[in-house]
Protein backbone atom coordinates (compact mmCIF):
# COMPACT_ATOMS: atom_id res chain seq x y z
CA UNK A 1 0.00 0.00 0.00
CA UNK A 2 3.05 2.25 0.00
CA UNK A 3 2.30 3.27 -3.56
CA UNK A 4 -0.77 5.14 -2.41
CA UNK A 5 1.06 7.00 0.35
CA UNK A 6 4.07 7.76 -1.85
CA UNK A 7 1.85 9.22 -4.56
CA UNK A 8 -0.66 10.76 -2.24
CA UNK A 9 -0.51 14.19 -3.89
CA UNK A 10 -1.16 12.57 -7.27
CA UNK A 11 -4.20 10.79 -5.87
CA UNK A 12 -5.42 13.96 -4.20
CA UNK A 13 -5.15 15.92 -7.45
CA UNK A 14 -6.91 13.14 -9.30
CA UNK A 15 -9.67 13.09 -6.73
CA UNK A 16 -10.13 16.85 -6.99
CA UNK A 17 -10.13 16.67 -10.78
CA UNK A 18 -12.84 13.99 -10.67
CA UNK A 19 -14.86 16.19 -8.32
CA UNK A 20 -14.42 19.13 -10.70
CA UNK A 21 -15.58 17.14 -13.73
CA UNK A 22 -18.57 15.84 -11.75
CA UNK A 23 -19.59 19.23 -10.39
CA UNK A 24 -19.44 20.90 -13.82
CA UNK A 25 -21.24 18.03 -15.54
CA UNK A 26 -23.89 17.79 -12.82
CA UNK A 27 -24.83 21.45 -13.15
CA UNK A 28 -24.86 21.24 -16.94
CA UNK A 29 -26.86 18.01 -17.04
CA UNK A 30 -29.46 19.21 -14.52
CA UNK A 31 -30.07 22.43 -16.44
CA UNK A 32 -30.06 20.85 -19.89
CA UNK A 33 -32.10 17.83 -18.74
CA UNK A 34 -34.76 20.07 -17.22
CA UNK A 35 -34.94 22.11 -20.43
CA UNK A 36 -35.33 18.94 -22.51
CA UNK A 37 -37.98 17.69 -20.07
CA UNK A 38 -39.75 21.02 -20.63
CA UNK A 39 -39.60 20.30 -24.36
CA UNK A 40 -41.06 16.84 -23.86
CA UNK A 41 -44.09 18.05 -21.90
CA UNK A 42 -44.63 21.23 -23.93
CA UNK A 43 -47.77 21.70 -26.03
CA UNK A 44 -45.66 22.50 -29.11
CA UNK A 45 -45.22 19.35 -31.24
CA UNK A 46 -41.79 20.14 -32.84
CA UNK A 47 -40.29 20.72 -29.39
CA UNK A 48 -41.76 17.41 -28.19
CA UNK A 49 -40.20 15.66 -31.19
CA UNK A 50 -36.82 17.21 -30.47
CA UNK A 51 -37.09 16.13 -26.84
CA UNK A 52 -38.06 12.58 -27.74
CA UNK A 53 -35.28 12.28 -30.33
CA UNK A 54 -32.77 13.69 -27.84
CA UNK A 55 -33.69 11.16 -25.17
CA UNK A 56 -33.82 8.22 -27.59
CA UNK A 57 -30.39 9.03 -29.02
CA UNK A 58 -28.51 9.76 -25.81
CA UNK A 59 -30.09 7.04 -23.71
CA UNK A 60 -29.35 4.29 -26.21
CA UNK A 61 -25.91 5.38 -27.30
CA UNK A 62 -22.91 4.32 -25.18
CA UNK A 63 -21.16 7.20 -23.44
CA UNK A 64 -17.96 6.22 -25.27
CA UNK A 65 -19.56 6.89 -28.64
CA UNK A 66 -20.99 10.22 -27.40
CA UNK A 67 -17.52 11.22 -26.21
CA UNK A 68 -15.92 10.26 -29.52
CA UNK A 69 -18.54 12.35 -31.27
CA UNK A 70 -17.71 15.34 -29.10
CA UNK A 71 -14.00 14.94 -29.68
CA UNK A 72 -14.22 14.45 -33.47
CA UNK A 73 -17.51 16.13 -34.36
CA UNK A 74 -17.53 19.39 -32.42
CA UNK A 75 -14.34 20.76 -34.04
CA UNK A 76 -15.87 20.03 -37.46
CA UNK A 77 -18.86 22.30 -36.77
CA UNK A 78 -16.61 25.05 -35.54
CA UNK A 79 -16.61 24.39 -31.79
CA UNK A 80 -13.05 24.27 -30.57
CA UNK A 81 -11.76 23.84 -27.09
CA UNK A 82 -9.65 21.76 -24.77
CA UNK A 83 -10.26 18.03 -24.55
CA UNK A 84 -11.35 18.59 -20.97
CA UNK A 85 -14.38 20.53 -22.19
CA UNK A 86 -15.24 17.93 -24.81
CA UNK A 87 -15.22 15.33 -22.04
CA UNK A 88 -17.47 17.41 -19.82
CA UNK A 89 -19.78 18.18 -22.77
CA UNK A 90 -20.12 14.50 -23.60
CA UNK A 91 -20.96 13.66 -20.01
CA UNK A 92 -23.51 16.51 -19.89
CA UNK A 93 -25.22 15.42 -23.13
CA UNK A 94 -25.39 11.78 -22.04
CA UNK A 95 -26.62 12.49 -18.50
CA UNK A 96 -29.16 15.10 -19.61
CA UNK A 97 -31.27 12.37 -21.23
CA UNK A 98 -31.56 10.54 -17.91
CA UNK A 99 -32.23 13.77 -15.98
CA UNK A 100 -34.96 14.59 -18.50
CA UNK A 101 -36.69 11.27 -17.99
CA UNK A 102 -36.52 11.57 -14.20
CA UNK A 103 -38.00 15.09 -14.27
CA UNK A 104 -40.69 14.13 -16.75
CA UNK A 105 -41.70 11.11 -14.69
CA UNK A 106 -41.94 13.42 -11.67
CA UNK A 107 -44.22 15.89 -13.44
CA UNK A 108 -46.40 13.07 -14.73
CA UNK A 109 -46.61 11.54 -11.26
CA UNK A 110 -48.59 14.55 -10.00
CA UNK A 111 -52.25 13.53 -10.17
CA UNK A 112 -54.13 15.46 -12.87
CA UNK A 113 -56.73 16.46 -10.25
CA UNK A 114 -54.13 18.67 -8.55
CA UNK A 115 -53.66 20.86 -11.60
CA UNK A 116 -57.36 20.77 -12.39
CA UNK A 117 -58.12 21.95 -8.86
CA UNK A 118 -55.50 24.68 -9.22
CA UNK A 119 -57.11 25.89 -12.45
CA UNK A 120 -60.56 25.62 -10.90
CA UNK A 121 -59.62 28.07 -8.13
CA UNK A 122 -58.37 30.43 -10.81
CA UNK A 123 -54.59 30.07 -10.68
CA UNK A 124 -52.79 30.97 -13.88
CA UNK A 125 -50.52 28.47 -15.67
CA UNK A 126 -47.44 29.95 -14.01
CA UNK A 127 -49.03 29.95 -10.57
CA UNK A 128 -50.29 26.39 -10.83
CA UNK A 129 -46.91 25.26 -12.09
CA UNK A 130 -44.83 26.97 -9.42
CA UNK A 131 -47.07 26.60 -6.39
CA UNK A 132 -48.93 23.34 -7.05
CA UNK A 133 -47.33 21.04 -9.60
CA UNK A 134 -43.60 21.62 -9.20
CA UNK A 135 -43.41 21.41 -5.38
CA UNK A 136 -45.08 18.02 -5.56
CA UNK A 137 -43.12 16.88 -8.60
CA UNK A 138 -39.79 17.81 -7.03
CA UNK A 139 -40.35 15.44 -4.12
CA UNK A 140 -40.84 12.49 -6.45
CA UNK A 141 -37.96 13.62 -8.62
CA UNK A 142 -35.30 13.91 -5.93
CA UNK A 143 -34.55 10.18 -5.38
CA UNK A 144 -34.27 9.21 -9.08
CA UNK A 145 -32.29 12.39 -9.82
CA UNK A 146 -29.87 11.46 -7.05
CA UNK A 147 -29.36 8.03 -8.58
CA UNK A 148 -28.76 9.65 -11.97
CA UNK A 149 -26.10 11.93 -10.50
CA UNK A 150 -24.39 9.06 -8.66
CA UNK A 151 -24.36 7.08 -11.91
CA UNK A 152 -22.87 10.15 -13.58
CA UNK A 153 -20.08 10.30 -11.02
CA UNK A 154 -19.24 6.70 -11.88
CA UNK A 155 -19.42 7.51 -15.58
CA UNK A 156 -16.93 10.32 -15.11
CA UNK A 157 -14.31 7.54 -14.94
CA UNK A 158 -15.08 6.88 -18.62
CA UNK A 159 -14.28 10.51 -19.39
CA UNK A 160 -11.01 9.94 -17.53
CA UNK A 161 -10.33 6.84 -19.62
CA UNK A 162 -10.36 9.12 -22.67
CA UNK A 163 -7.27 10.83 -21.38
CA UNK A 164 -8.95 14.08 -20.42
CA UNK A 165 -6.16 14.13 -17.94
CA UNK A 166 -5.50 14.06 -14.29
CA UNK A 167 -8.63 12.46 -12.85
CA UNK A 168 -8.67 9.36 -10.65
CA UNK A 169 -8.83 6.92 -13.55
CA UNK A 170 -5.91 8.67 -15.25
CA UNK A 171 -3.89 8.40 -12.02
CA UNK A 172 -4.44 4.64 -11.99
CA UNK A 173 -3.54 4.39 -15.66
CA UNK A 174 -0.37 6.48 -15.34
CA UNK A 175 0.91 4.64 -12.30
CA UNK A 176 0.30 1.17 -13.72
CA UNK A 177 1.27 1.57 -17.37
CA UNK A 178 3.75 4.45 -17.47
CA UNK A 179 5.50 3.84 -14.16
CA UNK A 180 4.97 0.10 -13.99
CA UNK A 181 3.73 0.03 -10.40
CA UNK A 182 1.92 -3.09 -9.18
CA UNK A 183 -1.67 -2.92 -10.37
CA UNK A 184 -3.45 -4.21 -7.27
CA UNK A 185 -2.48 -1.51 -4.73
CA UNK A 186 -2.64 1.31 -7.30
CA UNK A 187 -6.11 0.43 -8.49
CA UNK A 188 -7.31 -0.28 -4.96
CA UNK A 189 -6.43 3.35 -4.22
CA UNK A 190 -8.43 4.47 -7.25
CA UNK A 191 -11.41 2.37 -6.17
CA UNK A 192 -11.22 3.85 -2.67
CA UNK A 193 -11.26 7.32 -4.21
CA UNK A 194 -14.50 6.61 -6.07
CA UNK A 195 -16.06 4.89 -3.08
CA UNK A 196 -15.26 7.98 -1.01
CA UNK A 197 -17.67 9.86 -3.29
CA UNK A 198 -20.30 7.27 -4.18
CA UNK A 199 -20.93 5.64 -0.78
CA UNK A 200 -21.49 8.89 1.17
CA UNK A 201 -23.52 10.05 -1.83
CA UNK A 202 -25.71 6.98 -1.61
CA UNK A 203 -26.19 7.39 2.15
CA UNK A 204 -27.05 11.06 1.73
CA UNK A 205 -29.54 10.14 -0.96
CA UNK A 206 -31.14 7.55 1.32
CA UNK A 207 -31.55 10.18 4.04
CA UNK A 208 -32.98 12.69 1.58
CA UNK A 209 -35.33 10.07 0.21
CA UNK A 210 -36.75 9.40 3.65
CA UNK A 211 -37.07 13.11 4.31
CA UNK A 212 -38.99 14.00 1.16
CA UNK A 213 -41.02 10.79 1.01
CA UNK A 214 -44.73 11.50 0.83
CA UNK A 215 -47.59 9.11 1.22
CA UNK A 216 -50.00 9.27 -1.68
Amino acid sequence: MNVILDNFSLYRDGFLQTLKICALAAVGALVLGTVVAGFRVSPVPPLRWVGTAWVTVFRNCPLTVVLFFCAFGLPEIGVNGAYFWFGVTGLVLYTSAFVCEAVRAGVNSVPAGQAEAARAVGLTFGQSLTSVVLPQALRTVVPPLGSVIIAMIKNSAIVGAFGVGGDLFAVGDTLTSARGEAALPVLTGVVLGYLAITIPGGLLLGLLERKVAIAR
Partner: peptide, 8 residues
Protein backbone atom coordinates in the same frame (compact mmCIF):
# COMPACT_ATOMS: atom_id res chain seq x y z
CA UNK B 1 -19.41 -3.08 -5.67
CA UNK B 2 -22.37 -0.85 -6.41
CA UNK B 3 -20.17 2.17 -5.78
CA UNK B 4 -17.34 1.17 -8.11
CA UNK B 5 -17.50 2.51 -11.70
CA UNK B 6 -17.78 -0.27 -14.32
CA UNK B 7 -14.76 1.06 -16.21
CA UNK B 8 -12.70 0.63 -13.09
Amino acid sequence: FRGVPVVI
